[in-house]
Amino acid sequence: MDPVLIGLTVFVILGSLAALEMKSLLSAVIAIGVVGLGLSIVFLLLGAPDIAITQVVVEVIVVTVLIRAAARVPEETPTLRASRARTFAGAGVALIAVGLLAAAFQTLPAFGSQRFAPALWYLENAPDLTGATNVVTAILLDFRAYDTLGEATVILTAVVGALAVLRRPERPKEGSHV
């Protein structure tokens, strides 16, 4: 297997651990940005340039939003740290989950050995049937365009939700407040 791929993925894992354990919120947010950028290179190496482009740009906006949020809220003080028992319990649960997943992955075909059956049909027919030679776009906007319509609705809902949550509160009447 490709050592570059494995090295980058390990780098991503270390970055996400750093993001969770850093004391300063700003450092944690920057670490999560590094995770996203490393992941986009992994995507590029795995033959997914569409995903890589989107991941890079999305990560930029996520980091910007998180930095603005991190500037508004207090740092993680020692009193906010979990007790030792809870840390071990949480790490144990996470380890069990990883073990179960790894066991489940044994039933999959080996990494990089074969594609699922629909892939061949899509690759063979999508360019001629839809006219789009980027098969990802062909599936996204033709074969599975219903999904995309639903997804546009999800973004609309998420943004409307954020706007509703952060709406400016009604200004209190003169002298009634503080």
Partner: peptide, 25 residues
């Protein structure tokens, strides 16, 4: 299999953060 296991480890790291951290961000 190694690559799948690494993805599982990444998920474990995220799960650890969700379970253990008390700071909402």
């Amino acid at each position: 299999m190694m690559m799948y296991a690494l993805a599982a480890v990444l998920l474990g790291v995220g799960l650890y953060g969700l379970l253990v951290k008390r700071h909402l961000l």
